[in-house]
Nucleic acid binder design. Structure first.
Lengths: 153, 153
DNA sequence: ATTTTTAGTTGACTTTGTCAACTATTTACG
DNA sequence: CGTAAATAGTTGACAAAGTCAACTAAAAAT
């Protein structure tokens, strides 16, 4: 918990630089997500698929926690995945209220295709940079994650 | 323009690290924007106010370009700002189709209040870090902006 | 002078996301 | 044990965010 004193003595310029970065990176992320317009899936759908894929077995509740997503929103999304045959759901053995969700063969195929095109898009973006710049970029990104992980619970 | 060759030889791990950072930072930005729920304004509204404030005089078209925002969406937003007395609009002297938009005294007051609370929120976030960490964070952020500015048109 | 482009508005719509109420379990606890 | 409280997921109703196309009026291009 910070005090008024902390906030007031905090260098204004530093805060402004961080805000500038946030604005800048919001645009970067926006650009990178633009490609999704051409895919059959929306950004939140892809995020959900990502979680299912990387957990192999996951419950609704876990997804809502991981993505800070409303459970009703997710419930409807999973229904649409189900209709499209992208997921399998089976009742959890130790808690019959919960379902273990996993990607079907079709779902996995779809996800991996999206995944590849995201990767290609980033690779394409990076192709405008030389090797050293890419290395530096990653160093900076790791650095930010390391520092901010301390505070983001 | 990148070639297939570039993409295929691009280190997969680097691409994955960048994607991981994007996911991470999407969450950070999401957390920072959460506070807006308590404000009277939405995120896109604040962004528009930001642009009006920092240009003193700006047209609708310029805002749509700066924020990649649909002109109909913006038009309605400006209408609501107008109704709330947050902006002044006057016909541009050299192009009577266009309007020069600026914040009213009330609008400026509102924007500055939002601005302060965003600043405080970031300052509060940073209060969990020591001086050196904050310095490092800014170095990394500047680094990323410098590198990515080369390519993001 | 007329066609084409542009600035902004409006109508109709879709997507995205939220909130509260509900059912069916499970867990906590006297 | 048995009842109360908490939890997993669904559903209805809605609000917020964003898009698309058609339109008016003015400006720019030809």
């Amino acid at each position: 918990m910070s005090t008024i004193y902390d906030i007031c003595t905090m260098n204004q310029e530093k805060v402004n630089k961080i805000r500038a970065f946030n604005r800048f990176y919001t645009r970067v992320i926006g650009l990178l997500n633009k490609y999704l317009n051409d895919s059959h899936y929306t950004l939140p759908e892809v995020r959900v698929m990502y979680e299912i894929y990387h957990h192999k077995q996951i419950t609704s509740r876990e997804i809502t926690e991981l993505l800070s997503m409303d459970k009703s929103y997710l419930s409807r999304m999973l229904l649409s995945f189900d209709k499209k045959g992208l997921i399998k759901r089976k009742t959890d053995k130790t808690d019959t209220r919960a379902q273990d969700i996993s990607l079907s063969a079709k779902g996995e195929k779809e996800f991996l295709a999206i995944n590849r095109s995201t990767e290609n898009q980033i690779a394409e973006l990076l192709s405008g940079l030389n090797n050293q710049e890419v290395e530096q970029l990653i160093v900076h990104m790791d650095g930010i994650q390391k520092i901010l992980s301390k505070i983001s619970n």
